[in-house]
Every structure is written in structure tokens, then in C-alpha cells.
Design a protein around this nucleic acid. Structure first.
Lengths: 117, 117
DNA sequence: GCGACTGTTCGACAATCGCGGTACAGTGCA
DNA sequence: TGCACTGTACCGCGATTGTCGAACAGTCGC
């Protein structure tokens, strides 16, 4: 299919932030960050939910904002985090976001455990 | 008036990112980051545009997401960036975003200068 | 108290978002 | 060649967003 991706220089932090300011898409990036090969359904299954057409929408947002590469390969679409480009344009941003997301998770788990006790 | 602000522990990175994933609000944060006292109209004037009611909406988003404090003082509303809280919860995030925004600006200026030449 | 000033609230509006269903297109395999 | 599989395209839906104008509320200074 060959998708249009923004060049590294065309990435705008505003777009990156609004792309990642969504739980589903942030979760996608966290999945992609751990590495390994991912196609759309594998991520979809990892996240547990959502229809294919919904994810197609999220892929587009992540792609257009320059957060991921989406490369057709056979009948699949390989998904890759554009870490190099993002790190080059915004040093430390991705790491801060990802570890922030992990911190939120940990805090929320502690809260749930606390309120359950 | 006394606004409801989230505690430091109630801040969610998802909310912060979507709050900052908007040009106007990102610009507000950049203005607040340089320091000094700011009330609503001073920021409004610095940004040049937009109606008061529009900004009231943006204040709410920034406030609810935990990015700014908004404290009534006399007939004004003092606006302060919650840098300490954000740095504590998400080390490096704010700096990465702010320098990223500056980098975008610089790059865009270079592009405009290049296309004009 | 009156007027100027600051900022909120409310209502409206178009645009976009997030989500899903259905249909379709491309690929691989038997 | 036919079928299973992967993912997109298109359409529709309700909810949210960004914007604004008008009206209101609190505060300061005269």
C-alpha cells in the first residue's frame, strides 16, 4: 500500500504529543518500545480489544505524527517505533514519556491495592 | 473562586500530553516557563490573539491535567507552571517538551528563510 | 456607589475524534 | 483457482474540542 510518512524534519512536537495523549496510542507505543516484530493484529491482541477499523485510525494518527513506521510486508503491516528520529528531534522526550507511563501504571496499581486493603 | 487542581499523584501523563498537544496551550506553557508573574490577560496579550472565553477553556484543560496552578489574587488570576510536580512525576519530560518546541520553532524559521531565499 | 477591569459561565456552532460495522483489496497457501 | 488471512476504505454515530459572543460576578480605585 505504501504509506506517506513525514520526514524527520517534518515531525512537529505538537502532533507527537497529541498523538500520544491518548491511552490506546500510548499503549501501542509502549508495546512497540519493548522491541520485536509487530504487525497490526499482534498489537491489537496484546491490547486485548478494539476493532480493526478503529486501529487503522490510530495507525494513521501515529504514522502522520511521525511516531511509527508502517511498512507493508507480504500480507502484513510491520509496525516500528521511529525511535531514532524522535530521539534526534526531541532528545529524552520518548524516554521521559515511556517511563512516565510506566510510573503512572505503578502508581495506579499501588492505589488500587491500597483501596482494596 | 478557588479552582480544583489535581494532586501531584493524580496527574496522568496521558492528560498532560493531550493538554500540551495543542499549539495554544503549548505556547502558554512556554510563556509561563520563562518565569515572572502572569495573569490571564498578560498571557493572552503575549500570544496576541484569542478571546477571553477561549482562554478560560484552555486554562481549565491545563489546570485539570495538572500542568498549571491558577490562583485568584485580587481581581486577577495568577498562573504558574507546576514545574516541581511535573518534574517529580515525570523527570525530564517538561524540559524535553520545551526544548523540543524551541527546536521546532528554530527549524520552522530556517525553513521559511530557506524557501524565501 | 460607580465605573473600569479581570476573568468566568453559558450557549452556540462547526470540526474533529474515537469507535465500530461492513465491504473490499492484496497476499500467501494448498 | 479458490480460500483464509491481514489490514484498509468508507460510512455513520455520539461525544468531545476549539472557538467565539454575550452576560455576569468579583475587585480595585476614585
Amino acid at each position: 500500500m505504501a504509506f506517506r510518512h513525514p520526514d524527520r524534519d517534518q515531525i512537529r512536537i505538537e502532533d507527537v504529543l497529541s498523538a500520544l495523549g491518548n491511552g490506546v496510542r500510548l499503549a501501542v507505543v509502549r508495546v512497540l518500545d519493548v522491541g520485536g516484530e509487530h504487525n497490526c493484529t499482534s498489537v491489537l491482541n496484546t491490547l486485548g480489544i478494539t476493532a480493526k477499523s478503529t486501529m487503522t485510525h490510530h495507525w494513521r494518527v501515529l504514522r502522520d505524527s511521525g511516531v511509527i513506521w508502517q511498512q507493508p510486508s507480504g500480507r502484513e503491516n510491520l509496525l516500528v517505533l521511529r525511535r531514532e528520529d524522535l530521539d534526534a528531534r526531541y532528545p529524552g522526550l520518548l524516554d521521559a514519556i515511556l517511563s512516565g507511563a510506566r510510573a503512572d501504571d505503578a502508581l495506579q496499581r499501588r492505589e488500587r491495592a491500597g483501596s482494596a486493603a
